[in-house]
């Protein structure tokens, strides 16, 4: 187990280094843009050159990269040229907001999706199964930018029940959280419900369930005692994969509702060629992805004690 954790953390560090190098290289292509964004389009070429010089942009690439890397591991994540603020102080509130958004979405989404999936999977082909399947396919196939417009049209413009923007300028507000959570959940519930259903259907067809049935156990007992735990292995992986999925999908939802989260931050940083902020966001993403993988492996082990963390399995799951 310990060696497994060490390997995972090593992998995390390696991924971070590789990703940061790729991002740095990609942004490297046009450093003049940085000066234009900082000094404005009316600055002269001389002014841009001297700004770039002053801020060390003309040093060799590898030197600048190592300098950034060193500072990064020391906890100095650089300065955002767009927000004119240290990334260290800028980033946490935005990440916290996204954690709230995705956290609440998961809390709403998981019970609903699991319940729907289990109910549908208990009797394959039944009316409930059909209904859930249709609903799931429908919601999964509508992209967030469309469902955001659709739900806004209903709840904001037509019924006037909910606020249309979620900037939370007056402090945290639950009502402003409803629309973004609804959009994220709508897209997520369908897929997870389908996964749970498929897994449930498979388990329900297993010989041991048939045996239990023949022994006269009640449906309730069969589902809760025998089927559920095994049927949950696949959905748990999906849930863990949902966290990075939510992080990337939050970009669309956050920008649409002007929610001040990680997605909005990354979007703005990318538009404005804000190198250090983009790097920091990329690093946060890597950490989240690798950590959720780790959690998913651990949860797997808990649900299915036969899975061991010896080299082969761990490598396969990585």
């Amino acid at each position: 187990m310990a060696s497994y954790l060490v390997r995972k953390i090593g992998l995390l560090l390696l991924t971070m280094v590789v990703v940061s190098l790729v991002v740095f290289l990609a942004l490297e292509l046009n450093i003049n843009d940085v000066a234009v964004h900082v000094l404005g389009p009316y600055s002269t070429a001389d002014q841009r050159q001297s700004w770039l010089q002053e801020h060390g942009y003309f040093d060799p690439f590898i030197l600048r990269y190592l300098r950034w890397l060193g500072a990064f591991f020391r906890g100095d994540w650089g300065y955002s040229t767009y927000y004119r603020e240290d990334v260290n102080t800028l980033l946490p509130p935005f990440v916290a907001n996204t954690a709230i958004l995705t956290g609440v979405s998961l809390v709403v989404m998981i019970p609903v999706a699991l319940a729907l999936g289990v109910i549908a999977g208990m009797r394959e082909g039944g009316i409930v199964d059909r209904l859930v399947s249709i609903l799931a396919v429908l919601t999964t196939s509508v992209p967030q930018f469309a469902s955001a417009v659709f739900l806004s049209a209903i709840f904001v413009f037509w019924l006037g029940l909910l606020p249309g923007a979620s900037a939370m300028t007056e402090g945290f507000s639950w009502t402003e959280l409803v629309m973004p959570v609804m959009v994220l959940c709508l897209a997520g519930v369908g897929y997870l419900a389908r996964m749970t259903r498929a897994s449930m259907v498979e388990v329900m067809a297993q010989p041991y369930i048939r045996t239990a049935l023949m022994k006269g156990a009640s449906t309730r007992r069969i589902v809760l005692k025998h089927a559920l735990r095994n049927a949950l292995i696949a959905p748990v992986t999906v849930i863990m994969l949902y966290i990075p999925w939510l992080l990337s999908n939050a970009i669309v939802v956050e920008v649409f509702f002007a929610y001040r989260g990680f997605g909005t931050l990354l979007y703005t940083a990318s538009l404005n060629h804000d190198i250090y902020l983009i790097e920091a966001c990329a690093m946060v993403s890597v950490i989240v992805v690798v950590c959720t993988q780790l959690l998913s492996d651990l949860a797997y082990g808990w649900l299915n004690p036969r899975i061991s963390f010896s080299g082969a399995t761990a490598a396969a799951s990585a």
Partner: peptide, 22 residues
């Protein structure tokens, strides 16, 4: 007077106006 940044998407601005947030 408050200027509230709701991003670049004008439909989000109108949604906020419709909901009385601006």
């Amino acid at each position: 007077i408050q200027f509230i940044d709701l991003g670049t998407d004008i439909s989000a601005h109108l949604a906020a106006l419709a909901a009385g947030q601006v």
